[in-house]
Design a protein around this nucleic acid. Structure first.
Length: 273
DNA sequence: CTCCAGGCTTTAG
DNA sequence: CTAAAGCATGGA
């Protein structure tokens, strides 16, 4: 099936290249995108963005199509911070994805002290080795592996595929989730969710915020990484050095939509808009 | 060669 | 409690 949507507030490039997702590849007029065990083809033609997929309900939610981004975009501009305004104008087509919570847990453990191209490579090798093979649009792809499969692989496997020192983090956390599941996390209020996520090996404050924001749809979260630290100093005139305090500053400033503002800012800074 | 990347864990003070 | 060292890997 095919879903269509106004391209002004749905740009595949803005949405995929802003660091919230690591599994996508340029394809045809747009991209092939992978999430959990599903795949789609997303592209823009004229003033419309199209999603071709087998599970429309899943990707409607995945691309957050039920939300009005005009409102969010206007709010971003209302702060009169040049970097944020540029991000909102040039990245108007950026949407926050609703992704698989488990996939976010492992993906962002891998992301720590790492760069995006390498993160993508590590995740791709894990999927190819441990994920169930499937097919979409006549081409094969691998699903993101289950926690049971990830746990069975063990630390040496992660070392071999180039995960570096994060090997033990992945082994321990997948073993725990394979044993316990994560069902109980979904009902927790955001503060308690973050506190609980911090008890997993390899998850610190920044990674917990990314997991909460992208995997649990907690849009009030504001992950603080090296890029946010940089723009905090250069574009907000900030002087705090502690990341938790910088996080508090931005959460207080942006409130329930902090996550959207974070994505506009991250994108604008990284793309040098 | 050094520095950095969507930082976290461990240890020292 | 806070501060700093140590951690794999690859690209600039």
């Amino acid at each position: 099936m095919t879903i269509d949507y106004d391209a002004h507030y749905f740009s595949p490039r803005d949405t995929l290249e802003c660091g919230q997702i690591f599994r996508f590849t340029p394809y045809g007029e747009g991209y092939r995108v992978y999430s959990a065990d599903k795949a789609c083809y997303v592209y823009t033609r004229g003033n419309t963005t199209y999603i071709e997929c087998d599970d429309g309900e899943y990707f409607y939610n995945f691309f957050d199509l039920g939300r009005d981004y005009a409102e969010i975009n206007d709010k971003a501009k209302s702060y009169n911070v040049p970097l944020l305004t540029r991000g909102a104008e040039l990245g108007a087509g950026l949407r926050l994805l609703n992704q698989s919570a488990e996939e976010m847990i492992y993906s962002f453990i891998i992301s720590q002290n790492n760069n995006i191209p390498r993160i993508k490579g590590i995740i791709e090798r894990i999927c190819r080795a441990l994920g169930d093979e499937s097919e979409f649009g006549g081409e094969k792809y691998s699903a993101f592996p289950s926690s049971a499969a990830l746990a069975a692989a063990g630390a040496p496997f992660y070392k071999n595929i180039g995960a570096g020192y994060r090997d033990e983090y992945l082994a321990k956390t997948s073993a725990r989730i394979a044993a316990e599941g994560i069902e109980k996390l979904f009902a927790l209020p955001t503060a308690e969710l973050k506190k609980e996520l911090l008890t997993y090996t390899g998850i610190g404050p920044k990674v917990a915020d990314c997991i909460s924001l992208f995997g649990f749809a907690r849009r009030e979260c504001f992950p603080v990484d090296t890029w946010i630290e940089k723009l905090y100093r250069e574009d907000f005139g900030g002087t705090l050095k502690d990341r938790n305090k910088i996080n508090f500053y931005f959460c207080n400033l942006f409130g329930k939509d902090a996550g959207y503002m974070q994505q506009y800012l991250f994108y604008a800074k990284r793309e040098n808009l």
